[in-house]
Simulated scan of single mutants.
Amino acid sequence: MISEIDCMRLAMPSGSHEPQRDPGLKRKAWLAVFLGSTLFWVVVAFLVWKFWG
């Protein structure tokens, strides 16, 4: 059986290892956010133009 201390060690790893982040993935994520936002506002503008144009 796993003791409570071992469980805590597994759940909360020590701070000696920094997580490695891929800068390319971060750039792609921001690009997806900006493209999604742009697409949303283009659709909103098109609907406004269609109903009140």
Rank of each mutant, 00 (worst) to 15 (best):
M1S: 14
M1D: 07
M1N: 13
M1W: 03
M1F: 08
M1L: 01
M1T: 12
I2Y: 10
I2A: 05
I2H: 10
I2G: 01
I2T: 06
I2N: 01
S3D: 11
E4C: 04
E4R: 01
E4H: 12
I5P: 07
I5N: 14
D6M: 07
D6E: 12
C7L: 15
C7F: 15
M8T: 05
M8Y: 12
M8W: 10
M8E: 07
M8D: 14
R9W: 03
R9L: 04
R9P: 03
L10M: 15
L10I: 15
L10P: 04
M12D: 11
P13A: 04
S14G: 05
S14K: 07
G15W: 00
S16C: 10
S16M: 13
S16D: 09
S16E: 14
S16Q: 14
H17C: 12
H17D: 13
E18A: 13
E18V: 15
P19R: 05
P19Y: 03
Q20P: 06
R21S: 02
R21L: 14
R21V: 06
D22L: 02
D22Q: 02
D22T: 11
P23Y: 03
P23A: 07
P23V: 01
P23S: 05
P23F: 00
P23Q: 04
G24S: 11
G24A: 14
L25E: 14
L25H: 12
L25D: 15
L25S: 15
K26F: 10
K26R: 15
K26D: 11
R27D: 02
R27F: 07
R27H: 04
R27C: 00
R27G: 05
R27E: 08
K28A: 14
K28W: 13
A29F: 05
A29E: 06
A29K: 13
A29R: 03
W30P: 04
W30N: 14
W30K: 08
L31M: 14
L31T: 05
L31E: 06
A32L: 08
A32K: 02
V33Y: 05
V33L: 08
F34V: 11
L35Q: 11
L35H: 01
L35D: 09
L35C: 12
G36C: 01
G36N: 00
G36V: 03
S37R: 02
S37T: 12
T38E: 00
L39P: 13
F40D: 00
F40G: 10
F40I: 09
F40M: 13
W41I: 09
V42E: 06
V42W: 05
V43F: 11
V43T: 07
V43S: 03
V44M: 03
F46N: 09
F46E: 02
F46C: 03
L47P: 02
V48K: 00
W49G: 08
W49H: 11
W49L: 04
W49Q: 06
K50P: 06
K50I: 08
F51A: 12
F51N: 04
F51D: 13
F51P: 07
F51V: 03
F51R: 04
W52E: 01
W52I: 13
W52Y: 10
G53R: 00
G53D: 08
